[in-house]
Design a protein around this nucleic acid. Sequence first.
DNA 1: CGGTTCTTTGAGGACCATCAATACGCGTGG
DNA 2: CCACGCGTATTGATGGTCCTCAAAGAACCG
Lengths: 229, 229
Amino acid sequence: MHSDRFQEIRSLPLFADISDESFAALTRGAYVQNFPPHIEMITEGDPADFLHIVASGRIELFSSWDRSESSIAFLKPYDTFILAATIKDRPYLMSARTVEKSRIIMIPSEDIRTVFERDSDFAKAIVVELAICYRGAIKQMKNIKLRSSAERLANYVAKHHKRAGSTGSFELPVEKRKLASFLSMTPENLSRAFAALRDHGVEVSGSLILIKDPEKLDAYAKPNSLIDG
Amino acid sequence: MHSDRFQEIRSLPLFADISDESFAALTRGAYVQNFPPHIEMITEGDPADFLHIVASGRIELFSSWDRSESSIAFLKPYDTFILAATIKDRPYLMSARTVEKSRIIMIPSEDIRTVFERDSDFAKAIVVELAICYRGAIKQMKNIKLRSSAERLANYVAKHHKRAGSTGSFELPVEKRKLASFLSMTPENLSRAFAALRDHGVEVSGSLILIKDPEKLDAYAKPNSLIDG
DNA sequence: CGGTTCTTTGAGGACCATCAATACGCGTGG
DNA sequence: CCACGCGTATTGATGGTCCTCAAAGAACCG
């Protein structure tokens, strides 16, 4: 069957509850594209012709202004982007590039809007997805506005350590230069912030982060479900 | 008729296209509440029992952490808050307080979710509203991450000047201390930033902002529809 | 291997926060 | 009307955080 190519996304929250008919309508015009690493696939300001879904690989969302740029988010399978622009039929607010080789599923915005009108289960799923995105953006804003750069890094380390199973170590999923930008600091400062975390139970060796003393780290980071949750 | 009290919000984007039946269901359990100035009406972390709509007055959304706080947004009639928490049935991420005496319409979250399930026009309106909120949050993040504090102020002034009709002057809608927090700077620094804007065609007298040379201001602010739009 | 890019470290400076003191605005009550 | 008190706004002095610039070391890749 034609839509077999897209079975991998059928069970995503965005599509799990919609009818087979709606899913078929969404995937009929969709296609899969492979991108090599470090390719800019979306440029901010362009019209939002497709909803994108990360099937494999890793994507960086970033934004530029006056010859400086800043990382806004990193996406992994099966995150979607950029739903809001698709729905509103407005230009992208962020650019997107591959961090590594990635496979992307692209669904025409037209089809999204059509099915959205017809299938209320899909509309509901979109609402939930958007609400999650919005709340994520607010959390990130609080993170930047309320915490120092060292605290942001400490919380980043604590969060990813837990996410990786609290095994005492984890690999940074992106290079440090991008992480620095994501955390609103320079690469130089990130180095110094990592050095400062040694006093709080964290050691660094390349992209491998060792958490020697999780409690000590948490005591410093003071993670908060309303920012990091 | 019972729902007459709420005619003022019937034509809001969120409700304009929904059926009379749905609107009645939403307003049946709703009520209007008056708040004096400087009252904290919502505390972050609390369950989101109501969708709030500003009927009159002015509301500040802010967030606290480790005995510091930061303004996230200012709301005017007829802005809504906080839709995402209501939909997701999660706790508020931000606190809200009145800036001035305000009248607030409150609709039980339960009713929002019920009508949301039944009326796809309402679901669609919510999607649009959420998409706008999300894009607004992203723009604000870009503003903070990509511009200096003086540039943020310059763009704030330029934007509000245009919004007020480009008449050469406008009144600040909030006190400077709150504006400073909103723009991620201290009150002292805001003073100095205003002083710096004198070189770019802006003069200040109390809460009255005079734009002597709009082109000069724009040349410095470099407003961008993907950040300020 | 050689070139490229990223990371780290150091020195200096810009920006911004903090602290402190003064000035201003405004409402209250004398 | 003026004195007073309170909160806010401004201004100056100082210090800390963070950025910039520069250079060396490390990792990556052809």
